[in-house]
Amino acid sequence: MNEAVKLGAKFVSNSYGGAESSSDATYDSQYYNHPGVAITASAGDSAYGAEYPAASQYVTAVGGTALSKDSSSRGWTESVWHTSSTEGTGSGCSANDPKPSWQTDSGCSTRMIADVSAVADPAVGVSVYDTYQASGWNTYGVTSASAPIIASVYALAGTPGSSDYPAQYPYAKAGTAALNDVTSGSNGSCSTSHFCTAGPGYDGPTGWGTPEGTSAVSAS
């Protein structure tokens, strides 16, 4: 992270994560506190549960969705990506990381995952042409795909404000046409419904939803 920013990167995607630890706040300040840089992190692929660095207060935590064709004007129905009890998008209330000022969901006094989401279901994910490990076109998914998708939308939206933490940008567009609100599906069982179950407005598995163009993650 530090090297990428040192070399001038304004958009950095992270497709890794692991269990939270008591050292996460220290890692935040050492590696992820880069105002003016859009940093995305995968929410995880093991279904309900919080992971780090998605739990960092300084990154955009990206959840995962599943897409299916329909007859609507958009052409797609979108739901929480959840294949089994051990496979699906991560989400949840952090055990350690403080809640950023722009995040105000109830029931979690610390950092809540996720902020936004993108397609992650491997069955309907992204098409990749691979001649190194595979022959030709293949479809890949998981939140290792959704995090770079969101990073690319940030990049198309333009350079963030120099003192901004771009994770806050989608919150300013919450409830508008800038985001597709995902309202169905869950990634497991939890005592506080929105931690693991999609619904109108903000929820853990999909955040505020998926971007409808670049305005969802732009500074203005």
Rank of each mutant, 00 (worst) to 15 (best):
N2W: 05
V5S: 11
K6T: 13
V12C: 09
N14Y: 13
T26E: 14
Y31S: 12
Y31F: 15
N33F: 12
H34L: 07
G36M: 07
A38V: 10
A43F: 13
D45T: 04
Y48R: 04
Y48P: 02
Q57N: 04
V59P: 12
T60N: 11
K69V: 11
W76K: 09
S79N: 14
S85W: 03
T89S: 12
T89E: 06
C93N: 04
C93K: 03
K99I: 04
P100Q: 01
C108S: 09
R111G: 05
A114Q: 02
V116M: 05
V116R: 04
A120K: 10
A120I: 01
D121Y: 09
P122V: 11
A123P: 03
V124K: 11
V124A: 07
T131S: 15
W137I: 14
Y140I: 15
G141E: 09
V142H: 12
S146F: 07
G158Y: 09
G161T: 05
G161S: 12
S162R: 07
A167G: 14
Q168S: 15
Y171V: 02
A172R: 14
A174E: 09
G175T: 01
T176Y: 09
A177F: 00
A178L: 05
A178H: 10
L179A: 07
L179I: 09
L179Q: 10
D181G: 04
V182T: 02
T183I: 14
T183G: 02
S186A: 13
F195L: 00
F195R: 00
T197F: 03
T197G: 08
T197L: 00
A198E: 08
Y202H: 05
Y202L: 03
D203L: 01
D203Q: 08
G204R: 02
P205T: 02
T206G: 02
G213D: 11
V217Q: 09
A219M: 00
